[in-house]
């Protein structure tokens, strides 16, 4: 049973259809990358997977149960494209608040926060409000708040945007470690070298998956040496209808 499965997701905003029936399934311990340019529908899809938005038609199941459901959300972690932090609170207060919603308080919270901050490669200053953090630090704090309750399924929308390359590499190492420990990740990106680190990639363009497969598989099928070239190949062929 896939940890997360989406079938025939169609999403429309007003007259404009932004997702034209996409389907995907993610297995336990897998890192699935959603790769595509901005405006392709990545965030729309990810919001639907996280239960923040509901599609016009189609079905999302997490752990075999239909979304959205508060019980399922307890087992999921979601990091939005925006940092979605309370900028007037300190980092610790942000962690405490988000932790409390997952039932973490006291020593359990302290331990969870320490682990999450370690994973996100962030050391926080006690009295500093989040608004005074740099963009990259906020991004990592946002990631830490999503990791607090050690979710089985993590949905991360552009988690490494604006980070320095060293942090980016380290954070991807943590993602791989989490996957190795049996946790499942769905990560959107438009950075090719991050896409290389995914187990499987779904290339998304104009609201459809134009190709799906392991990075090596995609490059081989396109006869390309880089993912960038492979993406161009599939975009020109405009396959459509591929399901992950």
């Amino acid at each position: 049973m896939p940890v997360l499965a989406a079938r025939d997701i169609v999403q429309r905003f007003g007259q404009q259809e932004v997702l034209h029936g996409v389907s995907l399934g993610v297995e336990r311990g897998e890192v699935l990358g959603l790769l595509g340019p901005s405006g392709a529908g990545k965030t729309t899809l990810v919001n639907i997977l996280a239960g923040v938005a509901e599609p016009v038609s189609g079905l999302v199941k997490a752990f075999g149960e239909p979304m959205p459901s508060l019980e399922l959300m307890r087992r999921m972690g979601y990091m939005a494209q925006g940092d979605a932090l309370y900028l007037d609170l300190t980092a610790a207060e942000n962690l405490e608040f988000f932790g409390a919603i997952y039932g973490l308080t006291g020593p359990a919270l302290k331990a969870a926060a320490a682990t999450a901050l370690q994973t996100a490669r962030l050391s926080v200053e006690p009295r500093k409000q989040a608004r005074d953090y740099s963009g990259g630090m906020r991004r990592r704090l946002s990631l830490a708040t999503a990791l607090l309750h050690e979710p089985e399924l993590l949905i991360l929308d552009e988690p490494t945007i604006g980070l320095d390359p060293l942090h980016r590499v380290e954070i991807w190492e943590s993602f791989r470690k989490m996957a190795a420990a049996g946790r499942t990740l769905i990560v959107t990106t438009h950075v090719m070298d991050e896409a290389e680190r995914c187990d499987r990639l779904a290339l998304i363009r104009d609201g459809v998956f134009i190709a799906i497969g392991t990075p090596e598989d995609l490059k081989a099928r396109a006869g390309a040496s880089t993912l960038e070239d492979a993406f161009l190949h599939f975009a020109r062929a405009e396959g459509g209808g591929h399901n992950a």
């Binding site: 239960g51 508060l70 959300m73 307890r74 999921m76 979601y78 939005a80 979605a84 932090l85």
Partner: peptide, 10 residues
């Protein structure tokens, strides 16, 4: 964006 995030939480 915190409202959206809260709506993804239990």
């Amino acid at each position: 964006g915190t409202l959206e995030r809260l709506m993804a939480m239990p």
